[in-house]
């Protein structure tokens, strides 16, 4: 197996992977899409919302905002030691929003979201959330949690994870484009780690079978 870096920008990574079968390359790609955990808003407590946008749409939009992820400090809710449904400071981070429009038309952007933990904040400040008319108010508390793309697309760390396969050379030219939640190289690394962990797990299971 050989990896050759082609280019690295802030959110995109291109590299050539060779010496593997398509199944392996695809496993890497699939895991990047569906199993590398990132933060996304999962629970929204809407305290006030007299905007034209319904609570469920607002919550859906908030969920789709890419959130910078600190994998070291947070646990997946199902793996967290707190075992509580609400979550604890180790498995959730809150972001709050409180705004009342004073202009005839005011757009609420991600910059208006106030993160509890500065490391868990929207990737961009310029994502519009909702338009408010004068006097309309939105007050809410949103909870971001780690999650996997398999559950919902909002937890996909990548906007594109793809490759082209050169059958003659046996090379896979990968393109990984991050949503910004994690650096692209980190996504690839995590994916590799997950494959590794899965293999170890598999080995243990097989071992268990042999003993019995």
């Amino acid at each position: 197996m050989d990896i050759k870096l082609l280019s690295k920008e802030q959110d995109t990574l291109r590299f050539v992977l060779s010496g593997v079968k398509p199944a392996f390359a695809n496993a890497l790609r699939r895991i990047m899409l569906s199993e590398v955990p990132v933060m996304a808003i999962d629970d929204v407590m809407i305290l006030e919302n007299n905007s034209v946008m319904y609570d469920e749409i607002l919550a859906h939009r908030l969920g789709l905002i890419p959130i910078t992820t600190d994998l070291e400090s947070y646990n997946l809710p199902e793996e967290c030691t707190c075992k509580s449904e609400l979550g604890c400071s180790k498995c959730r981070a809150s972001l709050s929003l409180e705004i009342e429009a004073s202009d005839p038309v005011e757009v609420v952007y991600t910059s208006h979201l106030k993160p509890e933990n500065p490391d868990v904040r929207p990737v961009s400040d310029k994502i519009p959330i909702v338009k408010l008319a004068q006097g309309q108010r939105v007050k809410l508390e949103a909870f971001a949690r780690l999650g996997k793309g398999r559950t919902h697309a909002k937890w996909q760390p990548v906007s594109a994870a793809t490759y082209s396969y050169d059958e003659k050379a046996g090379t896979f030219t990968f393109l990984v484009e991050s949503t910004g939640a994690l650096p692209p190289e980190r996504i690839v690394l995590e994916a590799a780690r997950i494959i590794g962990a899965k293999s170890v797990d598999f080995q243990e299971q097989i071992g268990g079978l042999e003993k019995s």
């Binding site: 699939r30 793309g149 398999r150 996909q156 994870a161 793809t162 490759y163 082209s164």
Partner: peptide
């Protein structure tokens, strides 16, 4: 179909 199972192009 989940996205990872869908066919994809080289551009993603």
């Amino acid at each position: 179909v989940p996205q990872e199972d869908m066919p994809f192009t080289v551009d993603g």
